[in-house]
């Protein structure tokens, strides 16, 4: 019941009615967390753990002034899960991400997810950065842990426009030059790329000590292909057109897609990359759970 209540606030179509990404992220995350408090995932919440004596370099805003008043010593609050993790949110902004069979496109969904994750990360004092890419990296917002940085991330997300075609492997290769510290890399994409190429790039990331979470965002129509008749389909990225008999060829398409997902899962599993398939008509909690699961491994 509680989860259902929470899901109500993170239904993508409900979120789509809200223009402000900050509100969306806050709604999602707080709704999700309130659900977690009543859920078996208790340990994932951000709880006060202990005090630690201040050492130079600590954020002065985290000094507990009440304790200082009583003891005249500087102590900083230490929260459970506070790991100073650096999180990179990688958002696929290729043209295929604008596909939508209902009110929420894949890019919208990816935005909500990225905003929520950023919000989540900032709440946990993680340094979060964002970059969007298609065949190359389009824009980078470097990771920072300040609360004010969230607005920078959210502005970046709002400014994202679809361009170009998907070349994740190339983008990741370029990204690898930017990341100098072990990070949690969250890739949000529709993953229209050959599974082995993708796996090769991800494996490279993983071997450099990064944790990778792969969010595979697909529209329900891409997953079910519920159309009928014969239609000409145009590739949103290349403009290529193919006449397609849905009745006759739906099964073959679904088999191809299934095989693609199976290969992705297999490749990810082999290098301990978390893979999560997300439908744009489903709530974001699955994605957040997956993220927390991965992050918890770093603590």
């Amino acid at each position: 019941m509680a989860k259902h209540f929470a899901s109500r606030f993170i239904d993508p179509e409900v979120l789509a009615k809200t223009a402000n990404l900050q509100v969306i992220a806050k709604t999602v995350v707080e709704g999700f967390i309130s659900g977690l408090h009543r859920s078996p995932y208790h340990g994932f919440s951000l709880e006060f753990a202990e005090y630690r004596e201040y050492t130079p370099g600590d954020d002065i805003r985290r000094v507990d002034w009440k304790v200082f008043g009583r003891s005249d010593r500087f102590y900083v609050k230490k929260f459970e899960g506070d790991t100073n993790t650096q999180v990179y949110l990688l958002l696929d902004s290729s043209r295929s991400m604008s596909f939508a069979s209902h009110k929420v496109s894949k890019l919208d969904y990816a935005r909500y997810l990225a905003a929520s994750l950023a919000f989540f990360a900032v709440r946990q004092h993680d340094a979060v950065g964002l970059l969007n890419f298609d065949s190359e990296i389009r824009r980078v917002t470097p990771p920072k842990a300040q609360r004010g940085h969230l607005m920078t991330i959210l502005h970046h997300l709002e400014d994202v426009e679809v361009t170009g075609s998907t070349r994740i492997a190339a983008a990741l290769e370029e990204l690898s030059k930017l990341i100098r510290k072990r990070s949690l890399v969250v890739l949000i994409s529709d993953l229209y790329e050959a599974a082995d190429d993708l796996a090769r790039a991800l494996r490279f990331f993983h071997h450099r000590g990064n944790d990778v979470v792969l969010f595979h965002v697909l529209d329900p129509h891409e997953i079910e292909l519920p159309l009928d008749g014969v239609l000409t389909l145009e590739d949103m990225e290349t403009g290529e057109q193919i006449p397609f008999a849905f009745d006759k060829s739906r099964r073959a398409y679904l088999d191809e897609l299934k095989e693609h997902i199976r290969m992705l899962k297999k490749e990810c599993s082999s290098v301990r990359i978390d893979y999560e398939l997300l439908r744009t008509d489903r709530p974001l909690d699955e994605a957040l759970l997956s993220y927390l699961s991965t992050r918890s491994r770093r603590i």
């Binding site: 894949k106 529709d190 229209y192 008749g229 014969v230 239609l231 193919i242 006759k248």
Partner: peptide, 25 residues
């Protein structure tokens, strides 16, 4: 004879469709 709509339907990617042999009706 109604065939595919002259206005093509935009689809994310034809990556998988290209692999499917054309079914001639």
């Amino acid at each position: 004879t109604r065939k595919a709509s002259k206005k093509p339907l935009l689809f994310s990617s034809l990556m998988f469709l290209r692999r499917i042999p054309v079914v001639e009706v």
